[in-house]
Design a protein around this nucleic acid. Structure first.
Lengths: 346, 346
DNA sequence: TGTTAGCACTCAACCCCATCGAGTGCTAAC
DNA sequence: GTTAGCACTCGATGGGGTTGAGTGCTAACA
């Protein structure tokens, strides 16, 4: 007969994990026997632990050592915890996001807050704004050889681009171009602006010089440009707090991943995909549950935020598997709420 | 009689340092005896080494160990090397800076190149543009409650700022303001734009509403804003290649310094100051020669670059004291030249 | 049938100690 | 001035014993 989880096993497993989260040391039967309200002898605990090991929830690093939670064990714990504790509105009042006028500053700030409050490494991506609508385009002449294009997207995200021109454009032409671009493109979402539309505009521009065509191309390019998501990280050095991550070359790998950001990109797409599929809110990846190679010894907790309609980004905490999941989830949730309301409420 | 440096001592010291740079292990007399063209017995070398130690150029970590270079020893080596080898135009052709249209992208790229080519950590600051001239200001109405100001500085650096306004401004007013700001401010260096001038403009704006006054203030503020220098780092994980930096909590400190960037700021001002004082080109700080606390176990090699008239920034390599100074200096010089010519030549 | 006490066993961690060898400083001879 | 020789130092390495936390198993108990 297959072994089954009962109440007592659950309690013991939880006690083991709790203890391990604190100490980072393998937990023995005696410890559980004494420091739990179960009032069972160590021998009984041993029997149960033996079962739990067989079921795959805990692991013995070597004979004659205590047990540590396996990925499966953590998973069980996290799932139970997530279900139970929807309570406790966090009270970290010191963690207030100030609205920075530069979005990048805001994100850097949030990353720092996350890292500082949790003592783990943190990252946050810039919001992806595909679905956002173009609000306003402004071309102006800077000097004989360059045109400035400013593009404002809903949510007041700015982009600018200096466009080099081979021959000067007179003010009239620029005015005309401005009008043309605005009438055609305003109100459209970035996704709706395609090649056909651009060609149409070029035709209507009437004067078929290369210069004008290249300006329009440059504008179109600038509009599409911000596909590249920015990733901000903070608290990389926090991983030195956890010996199990600092061993061997692990630290180097993790630091590298945080710096290179390419691998983090995979994490992002993984998260957003999961999010699409319905799992919503806070997600937890334990050890090998994430596909990112250098994070196999870590746990990653992610959350999405939505600054404004269609401007969704993602933030996450990266730490050891023995992470204080509750605190991390709380912290993420708090920040998530703050970000969500930041631009909307005003 | 004080001990003096002679040719043979110099050669021996150089051999010690060279060897130590390669191996990272204390160097014994026998090694030098065999692997140098001096053809001296180990005993003779020992005598000389004893002298060198007394003079402070080398250190014995403990009795019965070989010698390692002291900060002073490195300094001697570096000075000699810098004098000797002004030769060898580097030939790292693969290290080509591509002109990115975003300055920040360019700088990130350079930081990566530096780190990748040297296997040390690298940083680069954004250029400081105090002395640069204002080229063009553009105000435009984004919606009822915000005005966008775009400021172009010589060298085509862009700044923008969204200015919230309490009441809508009509297009005429904005046009007028544009004209006013441009006629008064264009061609002035950022330093020349002072409070008096701003007041003058406000007066001339005629209509003494709070709204207009606040817009002008906001523009002035945006002009002054870019004092904050950005610092880009790369290759932090390279320090894991050098055990002497990875010991204890050193790694954590260094990584933290690279991430926090505040300490790096000190480094920057230190460098720029030294530069002012005449020492020009490549500078080397060995161990305690830098004032930055977390870098006492490192060497820092810095160089300044000048993208365009008045746009000077600084880049540096951070690695162990046993750094390949020649290669690093070469790399910096190459990149320096590339950056210097990037915007000018065109 | 579940719980417990007792006991033999395992094994990493620690300390102690002997050995090894790279390296030195000194001295005497060339 | 250079070198050979030698005694000495001391970190590194590795074997061997001890310790202690922890286990699994068994037999007795409720």
């Amino acid at each position: 007969m297959a072994l089954e989880m009962d109440e007592r096993k659950t309690k013991i497993l939880e006690a083991i994990i709790r203890n391990y989260l604190e100490t980072g040391e393998p937990v023995g039967s005696r410890t559980i026997s004494r420091y739990s309200e179960l009032n069972l002898s160590s021998a009984t605990i041993r029997n149960e632990m033996s079962d739990l090991e067989e079921m795959g929830y805990i692991i013995q690093p070597h004979t004659s050592a205590g047990r540590i939670p396996s990925d499966k064990g953590y998973r069980f714990y996290v799932d139970r915890m997530m279900a139970d504790k929807e309570k406790e509105v966090s009270e970290m009042k010191d963690m207030v996001v100030e609205k920075a006028d530069q979005l990048s500053e805001l994100l850097k700030q949030v990353a720092k807050l996350l890292a500082f409050n949790t003592n783990y490494a943190a990252m946050i991506t810039s919001p992806q704004i595909h679905r956002n609508k173009l609000k306003f385009i402004q071309l102006s002449k800077v000097d004989e050889s360059s045109i400035l294009a400013v593009i404002v997207v809903e949510g007041n995200i700015l982009k600018n681009k200096l466009i080099p021109v081979s021959e000067p454009l007179d003010n009239d032409t620029i005015l005309k171009l401005n009008l043309l671009l605005n009438t055609h493109l305003n109100g459209l979402s970035l996704e709706e602006i395609n090649l056909g539309l651009i060609t149409l505009i070029k035709e209507q521009a009437g004067i078929h010089t290369d210069v004008i065509s290249s300006v329009i191309d440059a504008v179109a390019e600038a509009i599409r440009a911000d596909e590249n998501l920015e990733i901000y990280t903070s608290g990389a050095n926090n991983i030195f707090r956890y010996p199990e991550l600092t061993d061997n070359s692990r630290a180097s790998e993790i630091i590298n991943a945080l710096e290179e950001k390419k691998e983090l990109g995979e994490l992002v797409s993984e998260t957003l995909q999961a999010e699409e599929e319905g799992s919503h809110g806070i997600q937890v990846y334990i050890g090998s549950e994430t596909k990112v190679g250098s994070m196999q010894d870590c746990s990653v907790v992610t959350a999405t935020y939505e600054l404004d309609e269609g401007m969704r980004g993602m933030m996450s905490i990266i730490g050891p598997k023995r992470m204080d999941y509750e605190k991390v989830a709380q912290t993420l949730k708090t920040l998530q709420e703050q970000l969500d309301s930041l631009y909307r409420k005003k």
